[in-house]
Amino acid sequence: MSVNPDSAVILVADDDPFIRHMLTSYLEREGYQVIEAPHGEAALDLYFYHLPDLVLLDALMPVVDGFEVCRRLQALTQGNLAPVLMITGLEDEKSVDQAFEIGVVDYVTKPINWAVLRQRVRRLILQHRLEIQLREANHRLQKLTMIDSLTQVANRRRFDEYLLQEWGRGVRESLPLSLVICDIDNFKNYNDHYGHQAGDRCLQEVAKTLNQCISRPADLVTRYGGEEFAVILPNTTMEGATTVSQRLVQGIQQRELPHDTAPQAIVTVSCGVANVLPMADYLPSDLVFTADQALYQAKAQGRNQYQAIYVMPPAAKQSMPPGAASAMPILRSLWPEA
């Protein structure tokens, strides 16, 4: 087993200054960086300041003993704690069981066998680093499963997850939520005319441009399917959503990607915008449905524009006359400049 001790930090918590000095001297000779804590409260503070690779913890300390320090660290780190090696003069079955129950991964007894301590320290630090690498690899893998491989924006799975997440936040905090669905105009004709490889490059350029038009970290551009993209805008009013939609339409138009079979001879997009104050009476699918209806209107009005529709709250529905539509269109469109 090999451990690079240059970057390994060990927190030593022991109220006995002689034992603490002995541990520190030995570990520093082994090449480790050592942080000393003379009591339990200091150990808690120093842990979060230095984030050590290992904690050497004396079991019996006044006021806050090693068992309580370990319990608190487990709670505060939500179980994502560096390994704790307890140093104790207690060898009774009850103390040993208690130590392992609260998250101690190993222990050594006093008087300390330095050869045993050396091997256990090396093993636990190596194990801790391997666990960190595994978590990071899993995180990268999970992130990859949320990305559309062609366009490198979030995929449909991420769209569903994020919409549900932000819907729940909107319900809890009474925050508006907006959705924009964008569709590349005449894309079938584009594929037929230029070929599918060129169509893939077009999708990539559109995705990149849409991403560049989004300014807030919370806003998310996703590939919704085929030539459709969806933009989730948390905590965004209808006014804010239509401003973003105008930016999206204009951004694609200004790229002037050639499209010989389109009326404007360039690639354009149509956008359907929907806005709602999430509440228990609705489902996220209501927002998606309304954005789809708005997109249909944008297509029917001539493409290369956006149309926007509110999802009406229950109170507004109740005040509407019988047979009236449950969504009210905003008659505002972005038309191509002459």
Rank of each mutant, 00 (worst) to 15 (best):
L257Y: 07
P258I: 00
H259M: 05
H259P: 03
H259F: 06
H259V: 00
D260H: 11
D260N: 02
A262M: 02
P263A: 00
P263N: 04
P263W: 10
Q264W: 14
Q264A: 10
A265E: 09
A265S: 13
I266A: 00
I266K: 09
I266D: 00
V267A: 00
V267F: 03
V267I: 10
V267Q: 05
V267E: 06
T268V: 02
T268S: 07
V269I: 15
V269Q: 05
V269C: 01
S270V: 01
S270R: 05
S270K: 01
S270Y: 07
C271H: 07
C271N: 07
C271D: 03
G272L: 01
G272C: 03
G272S: 04
G272I: 03
V273G: 02
V273C: 01
V273R: 03
V273F: 07
A274P: 02
N275K: 02
V276L: 07
V276K: 01
L277H: 13
L277E: 09
L277S: 13
P278Y: 05
P278M: 01
M279R: 15
A280S: 12
D281C: 03
D281G: 00
Y282W: 09
L283Y: 08
L283E: 08
P284L: 11
P284W: 09
S285R: 15
D286W: 11
D286G: 03
D286I: 02
L287D: 04
L287Q: 09
L287H: 11
V288F: 08
V288H: 05
V288I: 15
F289H: 13
F289K: 12
T290G: 00
A291H: 08
D292N: 15
D292R: 14
D292Q: 13
Q293H: 12
Q293M: 13
A294P: 10
A294H: 08
A294W: 08
L295I: 02
Y296V: 04
Y296G: 04
Y296P: 04
Q297K: 13
Q297A: 13
Q297F: 10
Q297G: 02
A298T: 07
A298G: 08
K299C: 00
A300K: 14
Q301D: 10
G302W: 12
R303T: 03
R303W: 06
N304W: 07
N304P: 03
Q305C: 13
Q305N: 12
Q305L: 04
Q307N: 12
Q307C: 15
A308C: 09
A308K: 06
A308F: 06
I309D: 00
I309W: 12
I309V: 14
Y310W: 14
V311W: 04
M312H: 04
M312S: 15
M312T: 03
P313N: 03
P313R: 01
A315K: 11
A315Q: 13
A316C: 09
A316F: 09
A316E: 15
K317Y: 05
K317F: 02
S319G: 11
S319P: 03
M320N: 13
P321H: 12
G323R: 07
G323N: 01
A325D: 12
S326K: 11
S326T: 08
S326G: 11
A327F: 15
A327P: 01
M328C: 08
M328Q: 11
M328V: 14
P329A: 03
P329W: 05
I330L: 13
I330V: 14
L331S: 10
L331Y: 13
R332P: 01
S333E: 08
W335E: 09
W335H: 14
W335V: 15
P336N: 12
P336M: 10
P336G: 04
P336D: 08
E337W: 10
E337A: 12
A338D: 10
